[in-house]
Amino acid sequence: MNRGAFRQKERLLGLLLILPALTIFLTITYYPLIFSFFYSVTDFTGRSLDFNFVGLENFRNAMNDSLVRASIWNTFSFALFTTLIGNAVNLLLALVLDSGLRTKNYLRTAFYIPCLLSPVIVSAIFGSILQYDGVLNTFLKTIGLDFLALDYFGKMNLAMPMLMALNIWQWCGYGAIIYLAGLQTIPTEYYEAATIDGAGAFDKFFKITLPLLMPSITIVTFMSLTGGLKLFDLPFILTKGGPGNATQTIGTAIYKIGFEYNKMGYATAIAVLFFFVIAILAIAQLRLTRSREVEH
């Protein structure tokens, strides 16, 4: 066999190896996504196979739908706050773990364990702890802090912040592990040199640690932002979107409109908007944080 034919055979074999993964990926990810674009301009109900084209009506309706508007607002605020506060908490925890405490290994384990729990278990446990007469409020009343004992999932303006707090609690150990690995790649010589030059702890953090940690910040922010925008399980199980629409997210709204109201065409219009929002925000975020990464 000559060299050219040999190369060609290898090329063909290579493409053949990619085929199984590609087939599943196209079938389960992109085929449904493309059909979502198609259904989004129809009044498809899912109950019958008949549907009419309605142009952009679904998109216009979505803009005036109080459920959709609430869910968009909730989703954005959840993603924003859990990303910003979560990042700060993760980084702080990583700095503490890196500070030479003798309990480091125990602490790392203790803060990591919550992220192993499924959202169903988290909901079950916190559904009890945060009840009005649950263990938290009973404890607060026992120590005389009655004014802090609130109806956490009963109040419109409290339910979403509680879900944010649960999310930050659950994932802080995970983010901290990634930051910890990032911190350990920074050569100690940089800090030694800075000390000789008379830099304080504040300067060292902002001029050395933070810029060199940018690759870790990129990845933690990406996971937190996309994860936050996709939020579904926790509000679906724990608060059922309520009270009112206070914890409806884009994910739960699509499910509710599609499978409970049987307006599948309308639901896919929201799903299409959802896809663009995540793609645009994720790409913008990657560009922004990547551009701040420095070589060392």
Partner: peptide, 19 residues
Amino acid sequence: FLSGMMVPFQSGMIPLYGL
């Protein structure tokens, strides 16, 4: 393949249900 990380499950959920 990496672009799959950005496609939320709910975006294709309804046609996937049919599929």
